[in-house]
Design a protein around this nucleic acid. Structure first.
Lengths: 198, 198
DNA sequence: CCAGCAACCTAGACCTACTAGGTTTCGCTG
DNA sequence: CAGCGAAACCTAGTAGGTCTAGGTTGCTGG
């Protein structure tokens, strides 16, 4: 019988498609094997476990996502860059819900630390913020705020968490506006957020 | 043999404890049955499925959480209320990671719509924002921003998403500050977010 | 006190992850 | 071009999860 030509890469790619079709939590070894017309056991020559499969999928998706974001923010700065970043982020999340869900899982920190995806993500994000004139540790705090908000928003939107009829896209734009304002008036050391004392 | 005295409520309560101990994704019918020294099948007289069990757990946790938040914000307004809300939110998420994870799952929208938990959550949240003088649809947008940010932050913190050594608590406080500023300078329709025109 | 209804059980079907070890096929090399 | 070695793929089986059908047993109220 003609062999399926399995490869780790091919498996992960198929897993990504599967994730977008049936949801990340439903990408199983069995389902993937079925898709290739092959027995479950056959996949274990290529991936060690579901865990590994999902981790690889997460890295694939993370890479795709940051690439798109990178293209979107290229040549922009300040609010322009923020809007472009946010737009690309949400677009990817909506276009590829399964892949996006994959990016949310916690992967072995040791594994993620020296991954190119992680480094590139940090570069693009910190780079985008540079125009706001923040310095460490404010920069890290701002990155966390952005990541949290974007992620939280897409997560809630994807899971139908916004029951209200208010258009989500409009809401999102407002949120991005609000974030821009927050970044612009960032509460630097010393309380009393009165004015920029830099 | 002495009966375990199973009840839907008791089951859900035990599931909540289990969730905090072993993680929400590991609360299974089998594990719960083991905890009661009972066979799996016995639980199905009290809950229809794992799905239902998890949904009930989500509602339990959501209720606990909003109660604590409600107490925290009582008698406060403006930034005070925001800080109290955020503090109670994060505290609950850190104290009860399994329960908190449960609150994140998507439950049947029809089921959630007429739940007291949902209504109470909306009341408390919108009430806290009232002091910022926002009106619909800005109010809804602001609620979404807050929910997203809080949720995203706790999710990332819980999953070890913040690799950086920067203290998370401090970062969180900064994020709350930033949100306050965003709310205070909310980008209203046209108008140049100058002052309160109410 | 005993009838009936929960509470709990046995048995089993079906799903998924994963291991051990066997067989087939492909591609390379002599 | 024969054949050999390494992948690629398989069979068989363990373990553990969800859930159903239907039987037994203990508790309780009339």
């Amino acid at each position: 019988m003609a062999r399926a030509g399995l490869t780790t890469a091919r498996l992960v790619e198929a897993a990504a498609e599967l994730a977008d079709e049936v949801g990340f939590e439903n990408v199983t070894v069995s389902a993937l094997a079925r898709r290739f017309g092959v027995k479950d056991a056959s996949l274990y020559s290529h991936v060690k476990s579901v865990q590994e499969l999902r981790t690889r999928l997460a890295l694939l998706a993370g890479g795709e996502m940051i690439d798109r974001i990178g293209v979107a923010v290229a040549g922009r700065a300040g609010k322009d860059a923020l809007v472009a970043f946010a737009g690309a982020y949400r677009e990817y999340a909506l276009e590829h819900p399964g892949r996006y869900a994959a990016t949310q899982i916690q992967v072995d920190p040791a594994l993620v630390a020296d991954s190119a995806v992680f480094r590139r993500t940090a570069e693009v994000t910190y780079g985008m913020l540079r125009a706001y004139g923040l310095e460490e540790p404010d920069l890290t705090d701002a990155v966390r705020l952005l990541r949290s908000t974007f992620h939280g928003y897409c997560h809630l939107e994807a899971s139908g968490g916004f029951g209200h009829p208010r258009d989500v896209r409009t809401s999102w734009d407002k949120a991005v506006d609000a974030l821009h304002i927050a970044l612009d008036h960032w509460p630097r050391e010393e309380k009393k957020h009165g004015g920029e004392e830099a």
